[in-house]
Write a protein that binds this DNA or RNA. Structure first.
Lengths: 253, 253
DNA sequence: GCTGTTATGCGTAGACCATACGCAGAACTA
DNA sequence: TAGTTCTGCGTATGGTCTACGCATAACAGC
């Protein structure tokens, strides 16, 4: 039963508990100069400035004017710090859907909100995900997404599956877009030149007889035209929502 | 134009060229005791046995009875080795669709083939992707996927978008499934107990007044029933294909 | 005010990691 | 046989995370 709140659940790391506001400072001992949220904010500042690879324990400590090992009093491991970074990195959830929105408008808004969060903080895409979300804001996002489906006839499990489908799509699309941006920066090429260059490379490598369909795509100049990345995002999202719509219609009828 | 094969394209790393069979051994110098494919195979053996984190240059060298730095004569960097590992890790593409299959049956088969490859080699999910595919077998997978859409009225660019949509979905779904498996192994819990445990944890954390929709999902016991992961995979795939079908119908009509 | 308890900050050190650089020797060409 | 070129690898550098233990600061009870 979900109602029974027993204290003896799976162990939650202390740093995560403090993110939920469940931890009060013990009366004994020196006043902490560092705090979990201060450490996480510093780590986010480093990631914003120099990317996720720059986030090392020593670098974060330097940002705070503290010693490397001081951080380990507050976070159990680097992975724990990363999990908390993701929580504040996504920022607050977009809020429940406006009452006049139907499920489709609501989920579209929700997907675009995540899209925007990932665009602003592309390092979020590089954090290896180790498990289902357990931090406050992450669950807030999930809540807001579920609410969009409140008025549909989907089963609860189906609502969750639909959300996973969409959030997975948003994440994947953002990853691909980001790879192009990072690739062009690494190669020192203009961003709108990298896909054409990729197309030329593949055209040079493949034998048209063995790769006819791929050759046809390249010949059509698919990779040459630099269309708006937002159009690509909208395309996939609409396909998925079309599929969801078919299901909702079936369940309603 | 995709037809023009000019030699002066973007620089391809030597190890990738040898994967395409474009490199012959220079006549001078001692006979190489190591080869690119031998190194990649050894790295794949290590990853199969002990996971991707165990793949270090020294570990791979030990596997071959060679010195660490010997590898760098054949691969330019660890990232390059990883890219080649992915190429052989996926294995050969599933082949063109049987003639009697329509596009939907073909893409379903294609998606399941990738699903199966990722299930057998879950370390593939942990390799950070740095760019679009340029290795032989990767492009073979793309070719086979494109062929499934040969008989549809989709534009070439739309075919590619559909493929990216599906492969992204397969990857995402495999990642989630794999997280459960790895999480349960790390926590020493039975795999079918980890989602219920997660459900109890979230139920303990959230306030039903602030998270009503999420609370409803938990109360419905969505996380308690351990349904077949394949059903979850089929659910999302069918939603996406339903959406693609709607588009194909529109283009055909 | 004094003492004991407890939590904090942090210094040291260990075990890894990728990889830049340069040298010894092998195998070919002329 | 001399010269060239490529392979293998030893050394060394600078980075990573983090286990462990010590000094110190702040409170609780007397």
């Amino acid at each position: 039963m979900a109602e029974t709140k027993d204290d003896s659940g799976p162990a939650l790391p202390p740093a995560i508990e403090s993110a939920w506001g469940l931890r009060e400072r013990p009366p004994r001992g020196p006043r902490p100069g560092l705090s979990v949220s201060g450490i996480v904010d510093a780590a986010v500042r480093v990631a914003d400035a120099d990317g996720l690879t720059a986030v090392s324990m020593s670098r974060v400590a330097k940002e705070l004017g503290a010693a490397t090992m001081a951080l380990y009093r507050h976070v159990g491991s680097k992975d724990e710090l990363l999990m908390l970074m993701v929580d504040v990195g996504y920022g607050p959830s977009p809020g429940p859907p406006p009452p006049q929105d139907d499920w489709r408008a609501g989920l579209t808004r929700w997907a675009w909100a995540e899209h925007e969060a990932l665009r602003q903080r592309s390092w979020l895409l590089h954090v290896p995900i180790t498990g289902p979300p357990i931090t406050p804001q992450q669950l807030g996002w999930m809540e807001d997404g579920l609410r969009c489906l409140d008025d549909t006839a989907l089963a609860e499990g189906e609502k969750m599956s639909v959300l996973l489908l969409i959030t997975g799509y948003v994440r994947n699309e953002a990853t691909l877009t980001n790879q192009i941006a990072e690739g062009s920066r690494a190669a020192g090429v203009e961003p709108d030149e990298i896909m054409p260059a990729y197309g030329r490379l593949v055209a040079r490598l493949i034998d048209p007889a063995r790769f006819p369909a791929l050759h046809r795509v390249l010949s059509a100049g698919v990779l040459n035209q630099d269309d708006d990345p937002d159009d690509e995002f909208t395309f996939g999202l609409d396909r998925i929502l079309d599929g969801v719509e078919a299901l909702i219609r079936r369940r309603a009828g």
